[in-house]
Amino acid sequence: MTDHIITELGGLRVDAPAGLEDAVLVAVGLADHYVTRPTPLGEVYVAFNGRGVSAVDVAGDRDSFEARFFIDHGRRAIPTDEIPERIARHLDTAIAAGRPGRLPIDLRGLTEFQTAVLLRTATIPRGEVRPYGWVAKEIGKPGAVRAVGTALAHNPVPVIIPCHRVVRSDGTLGEYSLGDPENKRTLLEAEGLDIDAFTALSSRGIRFIGSDTTRVFCHPTCGRGSLITDRHRHDFADETEARAAGYRPCKVCRPVAA
């Protein structure tokens, strides 16, 4: 009887439930789950693991998304229906606001420079834009304007880290990393930015605007700058001109890096 019992005890060994091994790998960040989410650009793929959201991408279908994710990250992306609470609670807010907020982001594998560029970019408010050179100055690398562009082109989580809000200093929008280049315009328009007005201003060589009541100068799209009425508005080509006129830089949009 004992032998029979031993045999039957051995028979109590079962396979691990489907998905358990993947769930472990996702939890420790060695594989990722993904879902799709609506955005102004249509449905995007959003991948995440135990460390945070790792990718936002547009793709024709699941297979091409999964293939590209593997090339970019060296990990498998596995479709799921379940978003863990700590991500679910903040994901749609982050997409709508175009900033991570409390959503954890997995930026492993990026250089210190790329990370600094992305974190700084994440602070640009919705509906506003900053030049590439501003990001470079803000992270203490004023000469690295091109490298900022490259870092933003490799932003793993566009829309959530709003690289679409970084544009060329001549007022044209520049490159965009997520799908069609027109997507940058679509996102900015969805945020209520008057792109034509901004481009017109920039093309006339105007980089900053100031108010003669506050004597403060701002980026043209700064939330404070937009409150300036035409009667009180003064346009400046650069910092020197603004300073010479007796204006100081806005502390919110920081037109001149500290």
Binding site: L12, R13, V14, D15, A16, P17, L20, E21, V24, L25, V28, L30, A31
Partner: peptide, 22 residues
């Protein structure tokens, strides 16, 4: 660690699950 851990998971998960289940 990262390259090998998936193998560890594959190797141990059925035993861990069966044991914990019982």
């Amino acid at each position: 660690l990262d390259g090998t851990f998936p193998e560890v998971v594959r190797e141990l998960s059925a035993g861990l699950f069966s044991g914990a289940f019982r």
